[in-house]
């Protein structure tokens, strides 16, 4: 339980049960810096629940989640975020009534307290950083468009951009390419590969082609347990995985 190690994120013996049903069962997961890990698995395997527990949305029943060797379990969500964990939700979760610029501005990691917000000024540093980020997520041409008017794919990118504004060391992306066109998938894959440097990323996805493009290592979850872990080729050859998930 108290093992210190070189992993950026180490999850040990993580279990959560909802009314006796173990959604995640004694899970161990270790992720290194610069790693891009993809978690796949059939519906109800507990993928999203794992992310929920890492970011503090769900409290585990037992187990430990260590990020940079400090425990995250029990911390309130905003504290976990401030330690460098960013989470993108399954459905695009942006502020529809704010512009692209304002969406990114709100995510700028300064002025987190109420008084900090009152005193917050839009300095040149902030503006530059926002423009830089807008460029990164291919939204540089729409700083003044309200979130509601963006296409589905653009909303997904904006949310990724909002995460990146916080400069997190661990990014969790829940189905980032769901509902995207093939061209948008390409762009997203390239974006994820670009932002992977210097941090680690956990992606949940179902699209095997997309997964094989980006994944360094794949973890297959089934009924709250790890079924297999390894490179994409190993996973695709694994008979257990073929049986429960990939199909014949």
């Amino acid at each position: 339980m108290n093992s210190n190690n070189s992993f950026l994120l180490s999850i040990e013996d993580l279990t959560v049960s909802f009314d006796g049903f173990k959604a995640v069962d004694a899970l161990n997961l270790f992720i290194e810096k610069d790693e891009l890990r993809v978690i796949i698995g059939p519906n109800g395997a507990g993928k999203t629940t794992v992310l929920d527990m890492i970011c503090g949305k769900t409290q585990p029943t037992t187990g430990s989640i260590k990020f940079k060797n400090s425990e995250l379990v029990g911390l309130p969500e905003h504290q976990i975020v401030r330690r460098g964990v960013g989470r993108k939700f399954q459905t695009p979760s942006i502020y529809e009534n704010l512009t692209v610029f304002e969406n990114l501005e709100v995510s700028y990691p300064k002025g987190h307290s109420v008084m900090g917000c009152v005193a917050f000024r839009r300095t040149k540093e902030v503006v530059d950083r926002i423009h830089e980020m807008a460029e990164e997520i291919s939204l540089q041409d729409y700083p003044d468009i309200e979130g509601a008017f963006l296409s589905h794919g653009q909303k997904q990118w904006l949310e990724i951009g909002m995460l990146l504004m916080q400069e997190p060391e661990l990014i969790m992306l829940d189905e980032p390419v769901a509902g995207m066109s093939p061209a948008e998938r390409e762009q997203t894959a390239a974006l994820i590969q670009r932002i992977c440097k210097g941090r680690c990323i956990i992606v949940i996805d179902h699209d095997m082609e997309f997964v094989s493009r980006i994944a360094h290592k794949v973890t297959v979850l089934h009924l709250g347990k790890i079924l297999a872990e390894g490179s994409m080729e190993e996973i695709q050859r694994n008979p257990k995985v073929i049986d429960v998930y990939l199909g014949h």
Partner: peptide
């Protein structure tokens, strides 16, 4: 932002 997406605000590091 809080009115529209409370969760997102929380996961942007705000209390």
């Amino acid at each position: 932002a809080i009115r529209d997406r409370e969760d997102r605000v929380r996961f942007s590091g705000y209390d």
